[in-house]
Each structure stands twice: as structure tokens, then as C-alpha cells.
Simulated scan of single mutants.
Amino acid sequence: MDVRVLGGGPTEPFLSAQGLFETEYDLSKPVRVRVRRDPDERTWTGHYPDHHVLNISAQAATSAMSRELALHEYAHMRRNEEAHPSHTQSTAEAIYIGLAGRRVEQRKLTHCYQIANHMKDIYADDITLSVAPADKLVSFLEASLAAALADRPHDPPRGHRLTPASDPDITAVNAAFALALVERHDLVAPDHRLYDLAHAAADDAPGVPLERFKHHFETLADDPDESEYRKALVDVTRRYAVETGQAAD
């Protein structure tokens, strides 16, 4: 596994993540880490015929989560190389199938892509959590959900949101994802604060069945074929955009 850090960023987090990753897995293509100056640059991975690119902000590359972020992206690269359906299935195609004949709010459509990313993350973190401690990830999930709840609007969203406040509907789905991930890997006790936060998120979005979304994420098959994965993605798209009461025929 060949990892090279470009852009003048720190190398230690990426090499440390490489060491953990290589205890169980490997990548056939080299990895180029590009550290960006923009503090708002999200961590994301590009896949090319002869290499992978990990894009990350300098702020994230020097944060306490830098090693864990790198390890998570290496896991996405692994899923891509092994042609796992979660990383080869066209998200746009599945959403189109799920919403065929429907009119859907733009915010809901955007959320459907985020939900599809959660499904990819489940499979990436199946790898991540097999080689690294979960403490930082659990703390990150807890902090992220707490921040979203603190930023929630006082009234339910109507039409296009004009403020940066968190959307209660997708916050509830994010909470379902967090619970699904920790339960899938038995990471926390039933009295962990994450459950209180998730229930608060569910209370803010009564039209979003938290338990149903949690079950969907938690029970994703380890090794689905393309048809099985497409069906899972189509089903959750339709469930969120059509069955949660905000879409219109």
C-alpha cells in the first residue's frame, strides 16, 4: 500500500492509519492525499484507473479525528477496489427508480443522497471497526448529533429552508444511522447518551420512523449482490421521500 501526502500537510495521521489498515487489508492502487487549505473542504475520496485521491482540509488533517478520517477513506477505497455493490451502484439511478412518477421537495431529494452515503459508510465502517478502536467514532457520532439537535429550528420546516439550521427529518435519519452503526458492532451500552439524543431527534421529526430506518441500516447484508443492494437503496429512498409525509404525487 503506497500512501503519499501532498500539499504540505502532516504525514503522521495518514501513515498511522495505513499501519492499522494493513493489519487486515491492502490496496492495489496508490493513494495520494491532497491537503486543502479551505477549512470547509469536506473529506472525500476520488477513484481513478491507476490511483485513489483522498482530499482533506488542513483543519481536518490536523484534528483529533485525522487518523480515523483517513482510515475511513481507506476503507472506501478498499470497497471500491473489490467492486462492492455499495460503491459501484449508481445512486442517481436508484433514486430515479425509487421516485419514478413522484414530485419530491428538493431538500428531500438532497437527503436521499445523504442516506445513500450512509449506506456506503456502513460498509466502509465494517472495515474500519475491524482494525481500529471505536472510542473516537462513537464520540464523534454523539457530538455531531448533539450539535444538530442544538441547531434545530423551533418550527417544523416548510418549503425551502432559508437558514442553516439543522433539518429535523434528516437529523432523525442521521440518528438512526448512528444507532445502527453502534448496534451493528455492539459498541455501546443501552444506557449510552447516544440513545437519549436519538430519541430527542425522533421527537422532533414524528413523521420519520427512527426504528425502521435504524433496522434498515443495521441489517444491511454483509455481501449483497447488485440486485439486492439496488433494492435496498430503492426501498430506503422511497421510504424517506415518499412515506414520511412530505412528498406529493
Rank of each mutant, 00 (worst) to 15 (best):
S63N: 12
T45C: 08
A175W: 13
A116M: 05
Y229K: 08
D203E: 12
T62N: 06
L233R: 11
H87L: 10
A70T: 08
T45K: 00
T237M: 00
S144E: 13
D222Y: 11
K29Y: 10
A241H: 02
V234F: 09
A92I: 15
R158K: 08
P85Y: 09
R107A: 10
Y123N: 13
T244S: 00
L162K: 04
K29F: 10
R230G: 02
H215Y: 11
F21N: 03
V173W: 03
G19H: 15
Q18Y: 08
L109T: 03
R212M: 08
H216M: 05
K214N: 02
L69H: 06
G245M: 08
L109K: 04
F217E: 02
G19P: 06
P10V: 01
L129W: 01
A178E: 07
A92D: 13
F21G: 01
A178M: 06
E228L: 10
A241M: 06
A178V: 05
S227I: 08
R212V: 06
H118I: 07
A202P: 06
H215N: 13
V236A: 04
A165V: 12
A198C: 05
A75E: 06
D167E: 09
S28K: 09
A147E: 14
D26E: 05
T23G: 09
T171M: 11
L129A: 12
Y240H: 01
S66N: 00
V5Y: 04
L15I: 04
A172S: 07
R193W: 05
D167P: 02
F140S: 15
A148W: 02
E81D: 11
Q18F: 07
P10H: 03
L109E: 07
V31G: 04
Q59K: 14
D135L: 15
H192C: 02
Y48A: 03
E82I: 15
V138F: 09
R230M: 04
S166D: 08
A100F: 12
V242K: 01
V138E: 02
R238F: 01
A172Q: 04
L15P: 01
L54H: 03
D203Y: 07
T219G: 12
A189F: 03
L54D: 05
T163S: 14
T91S: 15
I97S: 14
Y113V: 09
M65N: 09
D222L: 12
G7K: 07
Y25M: 06
S63E: 13
E228V: 14
A205S: 02
